[in-house]
Nucleic acid binder design. Structure first.
Length: 293
DNA sequence: ACTGTACCCTGTAGGC
DNA sequence: TGCCTACAGGGTACAG
């Protein structure tokens, strides 16, 4: 669910509360999410000051004063809520808009000022791991991650070099976190539409035989950056579960060009086509067969 | 090396 | 109302 724009929105919502705060107590209400929670989890986090909150790909990373990083992934349905003195920032919007959700509130950070930060995740596809900050780049989760799409590392040249000779289709190519880190099912569909590229096109068409970027690669890089920037500005996309840390829904779903718009009219100028839904690698893809080639 | 599938787990929507 | 199926923003482990 949460792709890069959603995770970044969560990060921006949590940072003012977490960064500079001390964790008085960590309450893990079950031993595992997708994977087992860290060994000695409560002991390793309690008493630590949070000195930074970063994002890499779809990971949220709390840097702890003791030198470890707490790495958190929201999976499909993970969300954080901030509770001050027993009241949420936005009463009525806490979790399911009906109140706390004990069955799925899995991890609670109690800050020393009394604020609680609650991790809720019905499907438990999320996970939390800890590792020394210095070793993060060598960790299996991070070692092979692709470039950050909003950084200067994502260029048409980079994309071409990674796509050279690859027969895999563009949908799967862009979903691969080892190529570009942070795109997911929504934003891949949106970026391909904006770049006017078919999801079925071979990734190799982003590069010439010599590995230079084609105009398609140039268009795709621009589209990826633009879609992600607009989505972050809108606070991400809320289809059903996603909420920012303050409980607010995102607004970018109202700007989708293709995602979840099967059988509706393509919005491109004089295109009279209909948005189609297909399946690539088991995931839904939405696109306009007339505009995207 | 690449591809496709199954799977992890739960909730919800839609068809009947 | 109830039952069943399909599907959901993520990622990994396989088998072929």
């Amino acid at each position: 669910m949460p792709e890069l724009p959603e995770v970044e929105t969560v990060r921006r919502g949590l940072a003012p509360v977490l960064v500079g705060s001390r964790v008085a107590k960590l309450d893990a209400r079950r031993p595992d999410l997708r994977f087992p929670l860290p060994e000695q989890f409560a002991r390793r986090v309690a008493g630590q000051k949070i000195v930074g909150l970063e994002r890499r790909a779809k990971y949220l990373i709390a840097r702890l004063s003791g030198g470890e990083d707490l790495v958190m992934h929201l999976g499909m349905t993970g969300r954080f809520s901030i509770i001050h003195d027993g009241h949420v920032d936005r009463p009525g919007e806490y979790i399911h808009e009906t109140g706390p959700d004990p069955a799925h509130d899995h991890v609670v950070l109690h800050l020393s000022d009394g604020t609680q930060v609650v991790y809720n995740d019905p499907r438990r596809f999320g996970f939390m791991v800890m590792m020394p900050h210095e070793l993060r780049g060598e960790h299996a989760l991070f070692r092979k991650l692709g470039v950050e799409p909003l950084s200067d590392e994502l260029t048409a040249q980079y994309l071409a070099s990674r796509a050279l000779g690859k027969k895999v289709n563009l949908k799967a190519f862009l979903m691969d976190q080892h190529v570009i880190a942070g795109l997911g099912n929504i934003y891949v569909s949106e970026a391909l539409y904006q770049a006017r590229l078919s999801p079925d096109r071979a990734a190799s068409s982003l590069a010439t035989a010599r590995g230079a970027p084609t105009d398609k690669a140039v268009r795709l890089v621009a589209a990826i950056k633009d879609v992600l920037e607009r989505a972050i500005a809108a606070g991400g996309s809320t289809l059903r579960d996603y909420r920012a840390a303050d409980g607010q829904k995102g607004a970018f779903q109202e700007r989708f060009s293709v995602y979840d718009r099967e059988d509706t009219a393509c919005r491109t100028g004089n295109c009279k086509g209909k948005i189609r839904r297909a399946v690539h690698s088991g995931r839904a893809t939405f696109y306009c067969p007339r505009c995207q080639r």
